[in-house]
Structures are given as structure tokens and as C-alpha cells.
Design a protein around this nucleic acid. Sequence first.
DNA 1: CTGGGTTGACTGACTGTTCAGTCTATGGGC
DNA 2: GCCCATAGACTGAACAGTCAGTCAACCCAG
Lengths: 215, 215
Amino acid sequence: MAIKADSAVVADQRRDQMLEAAAQLIAERGFADTRISDVAKRVGASPALVIYYFGTKDTLLTEALRFSEQTFYSMADELLASTPSLVKRLETLVHLTCVPQTQGEIPGSWGLWFDLWTQAFRHPEVKKDRVELDQRWRSMVAQVVRDGIHHEEIATVDAEEFAVAFAALLDGLSIQVALEDPVVDPERAYRIAMRFASTALGFDWKPTRRRSSRS
Amino acid sequence: MAIKADSAVVADQRRDQMLEAAAQLIAERGFADTRISDVAKRVGASPALVIYYFGTKDTLLTEALRFSEQTFYSMADELLASTPSLVKRLETLVHLTCVPQTQGEIPGSWGLWFDLWTQAFRHPEVKKDRVELDQRWRSMVAQVVRDGIHHEEIATVDAEEFAVAFAALLDGLSIQVALEDPVVDPERAYRIAMRFASTALGFDWKPTRRRSSRS
DNA sequence: CTGGGTTGACTGACTGTTCAGTCTATGGGC
DNA sequence: GCCCATAGACTGAACAGTCAGTCAACCCAG
């Protein structure tokens, strides 16, 4: 079994390697400009092998999108688990979406969101996936709120409804930040998001005067 | 002069024809899957002519994006001009972004936003353009608010700050609606947006029980 | 010797772009 | 009023490059 597993494990590693490489490349060049041979080159294999594993370019890239989004949400999950208070948790979420280069993320990973949306808009499979992923995201937000209520950090509110609105707001703000809109810099996005949350949930929050991050 | 103008006018018409056709096609198939020959076919011309006018595929598609976004904003402008009250104006804006098939728009025009963002993320020219367009959008929102203050429909607020937040929220909600998230149907998006506005600006608003639009 | 991982070489289709030249009409010289 | 030169819109055909996907063969662990 260890024997069979061995080759299977190698194969799985290869697959994951390729998925990660594909995700990186999509982030760098965009979905449409990512070639099979690029992915192959990055993992040190031949283009034919990539096809061997994924059958078609489209499934590779599509799975790569899934892969990286899941990675993102998993990271968010962990981060939340190791953060105690409601406010800090919310700050974490905002930070994660609205501030560039958070954590060890793939650089330019915002491009992945744009491509995900673009693909989802036209391909039902991707669309279905994205809906699930986003539901997971909103559930996380809602759970954070419910925990806050449970720990009596805030009064009772409709956690689900808040989650929908908050998630949408974060999406919108992250777009502006990702596209480097001079009017909506990360700091401002951060402030707007937290102000919204504090108003909707009824807790005190004031922007901490953090010195502007070095450009 | 009428003579010279004649050919010039024909040429301009052709250009606009092509831009519109390109915009439609981008909306239908997506930026990446729009071929020059498709555009040519739709206007009843040869692919060579399209190149003759635009020089390169990329400038055609890019200009087509600009073209259609400008069209959208112009429509919004007109709509606002013919709407008197603050609340009705806000409802118009929300409707425009969060309800499918508003007006005589290009069907599937949401796809254009996704493609615009995706392109803007990587191409500085497009990015610059988008920033301007979005600034125009926020200015419209801010102006609506200022008008409302001036007509004493609401108390004084920071119109600019509201515009940034509201625009972001609308973007986020429109994404969910465009991608047909079952949790965020148009009606709910509408409600969330208006609730946010009424809270932030301090006016009364309650959702009108409109019977669900036939599917 | 068997079978799965792996590859290099290849191809077939697609498509942006070029180019040489056609067609039409305008406008000036006679 | 006729004719030729010029320009600009327009096209068919070819070119050139790109790439996803195929295939027959190879390598090697078991």
C-alpha cells in the first residue's frame, strides 16, 4: 500500500505543484494570458505532462482558481481561530481584503478575484463554485458576529444580514484598493469598513493613527 | 466641405458601429473571446477594415470598454436629471446597478465591468481610465447628496465620504447579483443598499412590498 | 515484462496583421 | 462637360506566429 501510495503521493504532489504554479501565473499575467507551457516550465516539466494530469487547459486553470480561493479562506479561518475579540477579528478580515500584500499571500492575488468573477460570469461550473466559496466567507463573518453576541461584546443583531452587507462592502472596497484608486487608499478603505461595522453592530471604534506605511 | 465631411461622417459612423458591436460582443463572450472577425462580421465588413480603423485589436477592445462605460454614465446622468427627490434619485442609482436588465442596456453588460476590472488591473492605461470613470460616478453620488442637503431633505453630512462607501457597497452588491448568488437576489441587494443610505444620511425608508418579479 | 509517468516532436487549427490592389467619387485642368 | 489624377474606404488572400492537444516511444520501479 505504501508502494502504491508512493506513486500516488508523487502524482498528487505534482498536481498540487501545478495548481500552485498555475495560480501564481494567473495572478501575474491573468487567466487569458496563462499558457500551459508556462505552467510546465515553472514546475520543471513538459507541457505534455500538464495535459496528462489535467486533460485540458481549461480544467487546469479553473481548478487553479478554486485551489487558491480555498487556500485564501483556509488562511482566514486559521487567522480567526487565533484571534480572540470581535473587533480584532473584524479588523483581521478587513485587513485581509483591503490591505495589499497581507501575509504570505501570492502577490497580485487580487487579479485572481477579478479573473474568478469574469470566469464565473460565463461558466456555470465556476459560478456554482464561487457561490459556495462566498457563502463560506459570509458564514465566517456571521459566525464572528454571533460569537461576539454570545460573549456579550455587542447586543443582538441579525448576523446573517450584516454578513451579506459587510461582505459586499469589503468586495467593493477591495476593488478600489486593488485598482489603486487614489481616492480610496488602503487606510481609507480600512476606516470605512470598520466604521460601517461599528455602526451596524454598535461598538466603539476609532481609527488608530498608524503612521502611513512606507511606499 | 459637405463633401469632405461626408466621408468623415461615414468613417465616424463606422467607428461607432464597430465600437458598439465590440462592446456587445465583449458582453456576450467576454473580452478574451472576442475576435476581430466577429466584430467585422457583425458590422458587415472585413476584418482588415477593423484593423484599418483601429490599428490593433487591443485598442479596439479597450476603446469599446471605454465607450460602453461612458454610455452607462451618461444614461445615469440623464436619469438623475429627470428625477427630483433625493430618495428617488438614490433608488434610481441602486436600481441601475443592482437590478438586472435595467433600461435599454446591453444585455449581460455586467460582464463588461468584470472585464474592465480585469483589464484595468494589468494595463495602466485602462487603470487610469477606470479611475476617472469611477470618480465621475462618485461625484454623481456626492452631488445627489449635496442637493439633498441643499433642499433640506436631510441634515448635513460628509457627501464625499458617503459617496465612497456607497459606491463600494453598490459594486459589491452588484457582483453578487450579477453572479446570481441565491443569497443575494436583486431585491435583497436593493434593500441593503437603501437601508445603508437611509442610516448613513438619516432619512426614513422602508422597503416597498413589491410582488416578486416574475422569473 | 508490465504499466504508469514522462517527454520531444509534431500538427492542426486559429487568428491578428499585412499587403497589394479594387472600387468609388471627388475635384481640378482643359 | 469630359478626363485623368488622387485619395480614401474597403477587401481577398496570404503570412506568420502561437498554442492546445496528440502520439509513439522511452524510462524505470516493481
